[in-house]
Design a protein around this nucleic acid. Sequence first.
DNA 1: CTAATTGAATGCTGTACACTTTTCATTTGT
DNA 2: ACAAATGAAAAGTGTACAGCATTCAATTAG
Lengths: 212, 212
Amino acid sequence: MLYTFHLLTENPPMPDDSPSKRGGFRAGAGRKKGSSAYGETTRAIRVPESLIPEVTTMLAIRKRQFETVKSCSADVLVPAPRLNAVKIPLFIGKVAAGFPSPADDYIEKTLDLNDLLIKKPAATFFVRAEGESMLGAGIHPNDILIVDRSLKPVLGKIVICALNGELTVKRLKKLGGEIVLAAENPVYPDIHIRENSELVIWGVVTNVIHAV
Amino acid sequence: MLYTFHLLTENPPMPDDSPSKRGGFRAGAGRKKGSSAYGETTRAIRVPESLIPEVTTMLAIRKRQFETVKSCSADVLVPAPRLNAVKIPLFIGKVAAGFPSPADDYIEKTLDLNDLLIKKPAATFFVRAEGESMLGAGIHPNDILIVDRSLKPVLGKIVICALNGELTVKRLKKLGGEIVLAAENPVYPDIHIRENSELVIWGVVTNVIHAV
DNA sequence: CTAATTGAATGCTGTACACTTTTCATTTGT
DNA sequence: ACAAATGAAAAGTGTACAGCATTCAATTAG
C-alpha cells in the first residue's frame, strides 16, 4: 500500500490560491451523470457471440428512443427492472422462461397489478400523455399510458409513434389507401401520412392510468 | 520494444531437456475452446443498467438451454447471427425496429427462405430431431425443426419441451384434465404429465426441413 | 457589457490484463 | 499395469484504468 499525505483542507488536491490560471476546482464542473447515449449509466457484461446481434439491436432501439424522447422532452419510462427480474419464473417448476405453459392451470394465482397490466415486461414501457388530442379515447394530459411494443399495430388501435422524430399518440386508421393518425378530439386535425414522412410505430397502447 | 533471444527450436519457451519436473509444454494441453457456460466465446459489451435484467434473463435462458442440450447430446442451432443482424430494419424509412408498420404495403418485397420460415429471428431456433416417435407428423430422424419460442404453446400444437431435463418433441394435448405429450407413432407411448414432474416448454414447432 | 476561449473536473467507454477454471500429458504411487 | 496426483498450458471472466467526451466557471477579447 502506498500512502500520500495531504493537509486536511476543503480541497486537498488543489490549493485554491492559484493566481492567474483559468479553471481550477469549480463546483458544477465536469460531465454530468447520465450523459451517456442512453441517459443512464452502463455496465460491462459478457455476452456469448451469437447473442450479440440481438443485444446490439436492443441497445440501438433504446438509444434511438432516448434521442427522440430527449428532443421531444417527453416522459418515457420502463417497468422497474428489479421487480420484473424477480417475477420472471426462469425454468422453475412448470413454467418456461417468460412463456406461460398450459400447465399453468395447476398453479394458484394471486392478482397483481403488474400481472394484470403488463403481459410482456420486456416489451412494455410507459409514456406520459401530453395535450388533449385523445380525450375522446379517455386519454387526458399527464395520464400514464401502458404500451406494449410486441403487439402488432393493426388498424383501429391506439399507437405511440414517432412521426418525423416527434412523439405522438393517435388512433391508427386507413382512408382511401392512405394511413391516417386520427385524433380523438374534433378540435384537433387528423394527420395523413405522406410518402416521404418517416413514421416509426413504437407500440400499441393497452391501458391508461388516470389520476382523479 | 524489448527483445529476448531464443534458439529457433520446436518449443522455444520451454527447453524440453528439463529433467524431473512434471508438465512443461505438451500438445493438447489447456482449456478447450468453447468451454464456457454457453459453449461459445463471449465478449464484453456495455449495457445501460435498466436493460441488464432483460439481458441477464436472456443469458440465463441460453445457459440453461446449453446445459440441457449438452446433457441430452441433442443438436440445437440458432439462426446465423450475421444474416439476421443485417436484415433487421432499424428505424429506417417506414419500418419500425423489428415490428412491421402498416406502411409496409408501399414497400416492394422479395421472397427469401429466411423471411418465409422465420418470423421472429430473435425467438427462433433449430433442433435436429431424434427418434421416430413423431413420424406421423412428418418428423423423421435427423430432420431440422424450426422452433418459435414466442408462440404460445396451445393444445394441439407440436412443441419442443424439456421434461425432467430431457429434450423431447411431442404434440401437446389434454386428456381428462391432464396434460399429455402425445407421440405420433403407435409404437411409442404418450407421456402423461404428473404433478411433480418438471415440464419446460421451449417453443412451438413451425416447420420441418427434411432431406430426401 | 456580451461573446468567445480556455482548461480543469468529471463521467463515459473500450479493452487490456490479472486472475480463475479447465484440460491433459507426465510423473508418482501401489 | 493401473490409478491418482501434479502442474503447465490455454481459454474464460470480471473489472480496473487510460483515454475520450462533456460541462462550465473563470478568463480574455471585442
